[in-house]
Nucleic acid binder design. Structure first.
Lengths: 138, 138
DNA sequence: GAGTTGACTTGGACTTAGTCCAATGTAGGA
DNA sequence: TCCTACATTGGACTAAGTCCAAGTCAACTC
């Protein structure tokens, strides 16, 4: 965690209590939280923190490349603190829970030039969908 | 187009002017419209159609598997009438435009059992991102 | 063709997720 | 310690979508 804070300080971030709290929340258990969940956990540590600040801070972290935005469905965006290891996502279609996964293969190489339509393709995102053990069981 | 209408009638759909218009809009040029764009085009053909009906109808078409929902970003969902040929998407990071693409390879096979965490994986969605020729040029 | 009825449509209120902004506060350099 | 540019606040606002009670009408029956 202090890694993250150090990197941020190094990038000229002014270190406020609010930003520290948001960084701590993300750096805790590695789950994929929505902005509102981040806010809820931040409030537990710093009751007066506002929603706007959480949104601002998350946006900045995304811009800095420290956190990834994941929008696997129409519901709220989720934030993935695991920005430094490339990975993809496995999403439960029922409950929306997310796991990071590391498939073999390179989907970027699987897109022939004829299928690129003049686009400059820079990134690929693979989302596997299915049912998590809990939802499949019930 | 009458294909689509036929299929829907065969499934017990009551055929109303509104549903016909929505089906026609989707079946026209093959682009990926947002619900509001569908509504706008539907209004051009049938001025009194309501937003709620467009949403209802789109939802039903998705449930029936006639249309795919694509949510490539946090913005509005888009609807893809090309539900009968499996394909993936290439999205412009700047303007949000979408192309259907057909990569080689099978990403489902690329997810080893050890990376499935007990999930029943049924589907995979690949989204390529980049800049379209228009946005890259400017 | 008329009657019936349950499925469909309507529009407006509501919700959820997120953005914006003017006023206020404060981290960190001088 | 002071200063100020950067950060935070909260409340209003927006966009996308859902919900619902009341009204309408497609299609079946006769």
């Amino acid at each position: 965690m202090s890694d993250l804070l150090e990197r941020l300080r190094g990038r000229g971030w002014r270190m406020t209590a609010q930003r520290r709290v948001v960084a701590e929340v993300l750096d805790g258990e590695h789950v994929h939280l929505t902005a509102d969940e981040v806010h809820a956990r931040a409030v537990a540590k710093l009751p007066e923190i506002s929603r706007a600040t959480v949104y601002n801070t998350l946006g900045e972290l995304v811009t800095l490349g420290e956190v990834l935005e994941v929008s696997t469905d129409k519901r709220a965006k989720r934030y993935d603190p695991n920005a430094h290891r490339p990975h993809h996502h496995l999403v439960c279609a029922r409950c929306g829970s997310i796991r990071d996964v590391h498939p073999t293969g390179n989907p970027l190489a699987d897109l022939p030039d004829t299928e690129r339509f003049g686009f400059t393709v820079s990134d690929v995102e693979v989302t596997y969908r299915g049912l998590c053990p809990d939802c499949a069981g019930s």
